[in-house]
Computed example of a mutant assay.
Amino acid sequence: MHATSELTSSKRVVLAARGIDKAYKRGPWPARRMLPVLADVNFSLRQGEVVGLVGENGSGKSTLMKILVGALAPDAGEVERAARLGYCPQTPQLYERLTCDEHFELFGHAYGIDSRREREARHSIYVALGFERYARVRVSQLSGGTVAKLNLGLALLADPDVLLLDEPYAGFDWDTYLRFWDLVAERRISGRSVLIISHFVADEERFDRILDLRDGRTVPR
């Protein structure tokens, strides 16, 4: 899936992080101290790119993702968003008493999608990820793998230009893992961008670029 540098550089930037710093207070009061997590993070994502951001647990990956989507404010730096974002968090934000269908309806309303378009998109997502038989099942009764599919499906619902995925395939079986990469490839072909944050990368050839998050900074691999 690697693109040539000339082709990649000709695409417009759809998401950029510049000089991002973030630190958290740690330790008991009054001896609390600031622990840096991100330090001058800089990177950009271009139209049609699939980029991996890899780091060990505790390296600040999820903190950076929350800053990118606007769920967390950085201590310094800025994020520029030039396209509509879809966000798949590492920990699903779901309602145990609602079914999969009801989640899609709720999120579709929040996205401002009309009912017909939402139903069509929902059906396509069910088929693509293979969990249509769970459409009327409550989240509390779903397996972890199906919850992961619903979590991803909700991020895909509005067909965003940029898809931000935090450990998206942690609960997938092999078949779903392959389906996931088929979806990513289709989005790339259509000019949409995908950023995948994970603690490991098994298939480097599926990415255009991979960045490592080390000591709070992004380093090209």
Results as ranks from 00 to 15, higher is better:
A3W: 07
A3G: 03
E6C: 03
L7G: 00
R12Y: 00
R12N: 08
A16N: 05
A17K: 04
D21Y: 13
A23N: 00
G27T: 08
P28M: 11
P30S: 03
R32D: 05
V41D: 01
E49P: 08
N57S: 14
G58F: 01
G58M: 02
T63E: 01
L64N: 04
A71Y: 10
A71H: 07
L72Y: 13
G77S: 08
G77T: 06
V79S: 01
A82P: 02
A82C: 14
A83W: 12
L85Y: 08
G86W: 12
G86Q: 09
T91C: 00
D101Q: 14
D101N: 15
H109K: 15
G112Y: 07
R117F: 01
E118H: 04
E118G: 02
E120L: 09
A121N: 06
S124W: 06
A128H: 12
L129D: 04
F131N: 06
F131R: 05
A135K: 15
V137G: 04
R138H: 08
S140A: 15
Q141P: 00
Q141T: 02
L142H: 07
V147T: 13
L152G: 07
L154N: 06
L163P: 09
L164V: 15
L165I: 11
L165D: 09
A170Y: 01
D175K: 14
D175Y: 10
T176W: 08
L183P: 08
A185H: 12
E186V: 00
R188N: 11
R192K: 15
I196R: 11
H199N: 13
E204H: 12
R206W: 06
R206L: 15
L213F: 09
R217C: 03
T218D: 00
T218G: 01
P220C: 02
